[in-house]
Design a protein around this nucleic acid. Sequence first.
DNA 1: GACCCTCCTGTTGCATGCAACGATGTACGC
DNA 2: GCGTACATCGTTGCATGCAACAGGAGGGTC
Lengths: 228, 228
Amino acid sequence: MNTPRPSAQDVYDRLRELILSFELYPGSRVTESALAERFGVSRTPVREALQRLASEGHVTVLPKQGVLIRQLDAAELAQHYRVRVVLELAVLADVCANASDADLRALAADWDPQTQPGRSDDFAVMAARDETFHRRLAELGGNRVMAQLLEQVGHHIRAVRRLDFTLNDRVERTYEEHHAIAQCLLARDLRGARRLLRRHIENSRRVASAVSLEQLRRVRAAALGEPG
Amino acid sequence: MNTPRPSAQDVYDRLRELILSFELYPGSRVTESALAERFGVSRTPVREALQRLASEGHVTVLPKQGVLIRQLDAAELAQHYRVRVVLELAVLADVCANASDADLRALAADWDPQTQPGRSDDFAVMAARDETFHRRLAELGGNRVMAQLLEQVGHHIRAVRRLDFTLNDRVERTYEEHHAIAQCLLARDLRGARRLLRRHIENSRRVASAVSLEQLRRVRAAALGEPG
DNA sequence: GACCCTCCTGTTGCATGCAACGATGTACGC
DNA sequence: GCGTACATCGTTGCATGCAACAGGAGGGTC
């Protein structure tokens, strides 16, 4: 068997996934040693991964005390969403000004509500695909700094984004909305694109503000097959 | 003498300052060992600091090769400024909606062009004071996430911001502009505040886009008392 | 003369050991 | 019974040692 020792990057990826899927429950405390043993590495790469996660706001390191999986409270989520809206609306202007017709056509085709390419029933997969749309927009905008900041914001709202897709017909709506936005951009209709995108994100945000930690717990319990 | 061993946080602060003041020259390569020796610590806290700096875009770690001090090119600076404008304009709306009259009056008084409290001839001091204004705005806006992102952007443009204040009468203008913005906010004149702030930042940005790396080098040489 | 192969050096990546610090439980004084 | 001093334990923070890998110099071959 070929099981190479996990690197710090691997530890980071797996840890983040554990947090986003609520297997490491928000509010619970973990120790570097425990994680090191769990992943079969020493504390060093674990520390490195935890520091990254801390800078991204997923965990809080209490000096000399331990590491706390962060709660995600509704107020903070709302702030992230507001930042996201502000940044993405700015991106739209750049896209309108800079992106080529070919790129925008490709983007629109990739979210054609008729064919629905890449559609999946896995929430995590669809959430990831949703992210690629917004990431692509940032890329087409051409402002790498803004793209990276959006990436950062994305880390924080990823958990909620997944929940978003658990709602009925949210997948269809996403194809429609993304498609419509791409069409507006292709027509260089900035105002229209802004209106659509604002509403599109607002739809997600509304879900975010509705989810309480209690709901998250239930979702987690269901995912793990445990009684709620 | 009380000279406690520097912590990873200290190393981070000092390293960032070295980079921002161009004592670690952009494009040059440094090694963990060299920095560790320089700061009188082991490689561990240096690594930690470098990873943070890398995530913030100040350095680039080449795997198994070394650490590269990042160039700051004009294009990227422009992107940072654009992000800053977008975020700060959003902050203004929050301030108009949330901040109290008392806080805004205090802010205006703190930048009264008549008395010019806290005025200094040291560029770095004035740049820091300028930052406090914008930081205070973000605080009054109440969106901590946005404030933190602005803080991040601030790190990247800090070097240029300092250069900004080396220009003649830029200090006077800053007092005037900050005061006017605070007055607009106090009058809950969002549009006016937006216009002023946009122009205020644009003034700085113009400087930023003008400075070439060559100029930065000269400034650095002068600051260090070396021949250009 | 050009190219390739090999060895060597420099650097990072990770493991491990030690010290410092916070928290908790306990015995003691009142 | 209640509050306080103290010892113990758990955890992080840092130092150090070792291994793996990239790059370059040198010699050999075609």
